[in-house]
């Protein structure tokens, strides 16, 4: 019981930190994102690259403490990434950013939220009906 409550609290803490950091960097700002993606401003792109580098170095330094869980390649990776990248540039949000936009008071993000929900539901149906591959991730 205590362990469960602690895990809930830790998830809340991680979510809280993520919301503050993403808002602080400016990932939820449509104009900032548009400037980054249209190669007019490199600040957020450098932040993104540095964060990967920082995490990679820490994972390497402390690899004893982490079990590597590499994602498997399946036929949905390429078409899914194409759809996601295009959609990201259109609505200015990825699955985490939509919550940050709402937290900043951007009401139109409700449409993005509904859209993502519909997209996830739709994929579940399409996958069960037509695709047979094992996606092997995002279940934890």
């Amino acid at each position: 019981m205590m362990e469960t409550a602690t895990r809930y609290a830790l998830h809340a803490l991680m979510g809280l930190c993520m919301g503050v950091i993403l808002a602080g960097i400016g990932f939820a700002d449509y104009d900032e994102l548009h400037r980054m993606l249209s190669l007019q401003d490199s600040r957020m792109l450098l932040s993104f690259v540095l964060s990967i580098a920082v995490a990679a170095v820490m994972f390497l330094l402390f690899k004893k403490h982490f079990t590597t869980q590499k994602k498997m390649f399946h036929p949905g990776i390429i078409p899914g990434s194409v759809l996601f990248g295009t959609g990201w540039a259109i609505c200015g949000a990825c699955p985490a950013i939509v919550f940050v936009q709402l937290g900043l008071g951007k009401l139109p993000a409700l449409m993005t939220l509904v859209g993502i929900f519909v997209g996830v539901k739709l994929y579940r149906l399409v996958h069960a009906r037509y695709f047979r591959w094992d996606t092997g991730s995002c279940s934890t």
Binding site: A56, L83, T86, C91, A93, C94, F117, G119, V120
Partner: peptide, 29 residues
């Protein structure tokens, strides 16, 4: 926004990850 959201939702599930899962965690590993 609605159409973009559908593409993001569908695409991230199809690709099994997004900017955080693939971009941050996956690339760092």
């Amino acid at each position: 926004l609605l159409l973009g959201g559908v593409m993001v939702g569908f695409g991230t599930q199809m690709a099994s990850g997004c900017t955080s899962g693939h971009g941050l965690s996956g690339c760092a590993q």
